[in-house]
């Protein structure tokens, strides 16, 4: 934990930012995006670095969560006590069904099959004409909390996102340290060893996959509320790739690396988009260079300096 001072500082900074004059609409929107994507990235890091399950379809569970909000919104269900469990439950269910198949494979096959399931979700969302189809769907309102428009308040929403991110990190760290996580970590390194002590890795991996999906669904709930809009683009494999990239950029071996990865990714993307004309031509190569030269990712840099 001592080596985690930087991500803790990042969380503190995010907590203090609105009080230090960064409470405007632009800043809080940007920070919400960072925190929600970081939340999704941490749960993906739990899968990739913890369980060794390199999913290229994680955005789909985020998307399922977001679409749950949209679909319920279209049917006038906007109460958090119903919408949030629905978003989490739908994403968990989606992960359970797709994971039950995907986890039977490994390596490149696993990557491809998660990608395929992600695309399935993408095309399904595109074809939901009643909920905007390709164009996406704009929420009538943010989700209400026991009838109050709590989440509509910029500051409240900011701290809800921050709390969700911190909770995600703590939860995933706890899980990885537990007996359950020990089996996951052992199976990542040597699955046959795990079998030879009497444990089949499959159910552990599936539970991990469902948990990560559920967290993704919660992130999707927040994302839909942050933008008050959902669209198939949020489910695309590019988004899954971005999440995976945040994990790698931050360093696969540490959960909190994904927080650094998400911050760096979103800030860089935003800055380039504002300042460079053909920014995507610069962004791509920059990402490639970062992966090539930052072995162990950003978190690896921090730990090496201070560890």
């Amino acid at each position: 934990m001592r080596e985690a001072w930087l991500p803790l500082a990042v969380l503190l900074a995010l907590g203090a930012a609105p009080l230090l004059g960064f409470g405007g609409s632009y800043e809080t929107t940007l920070m919400a995006r960072v925190m929600i994507l970081a939340m999704a990235a941490v749960s993906l890091s739990f899968l990739v670095g913890g369980a060794g399950l390199v999913s290229l379809g994680h955005a789909a569970s985020v998307g399922v969560g977001a679409y749950a909000v949209a679909i319920l919104d279209a049917h006038n269900v906007t109460e958090a006590a119903r919408v949030l469990p629905a978003a989490i439950g739908a994403a968990a269910l989606f992960s359970m069904v797709t994971g039950a198949v995907a986890i039977r494979t490994s390596g490149v096959h696993f990557i491809m099959i998660t990608l395929a399931f992600g695309q399935m979700a993408f095309f399904t969302a595109s074809s939901l004409a009643a909920y905007g189809g390709d164009d996406g769907y704009t929420l009538y309102s943010r989700t209400e909390v026991w009838g109050s428009r709590l989440l509509g308040n910029r500051l409240t929403f900011h701290y809800v996102c921050l709390g969700a991110l911190a909770l995600t990190w703590a939860l995933c760290a706890m899980l990885l340290a537990s007996r359950f996580g020990r089996v996951l970590r052992a199976a990542r390194e040597n699955a046959q060893r795990v079998e030879a002590v009497g444990l089949a890795p499959y159910p552990f991996r599936l539970v991990a996959y469902v948990i990560a999906g559920a967290i993704g669904g919660a992130a999707g709930f927040l994302l839909a509320n942050a933008t008050e809009f959902v669209s198939p683009a949020g489910i695309s494999w590019q988004r899954s790739g971005e999440l995976l990239f945040m994990v790698i950029l931050g360093g696969v071996g540490r959960l909190w690396g994904a927080i650094l990865g998400a911050v760096a990714f979103v800030l860089l993307e935003t800055w380039l988009a504002d300042h460079v004309a053909h920014w995507k031509m610069v962004f791509g190569p920059l990402l490639v260079l970062a992966v090539l030269f930052l072995k162990g990712g950003l978190s690896g840099l921090v730990v090496r300096r201070h560890g």
């Binding site: 706890m174 340290a177 537990s178 007996r179 359950f180 996580g181 020990r182 089996v183």
Partner: peptide, 10 residues
Amino acid sequence: SSFRFLRPAA
């Protein structure tokens, strides 16, 4: 059970 999620195994 190895399906224990709360306490640190170490």
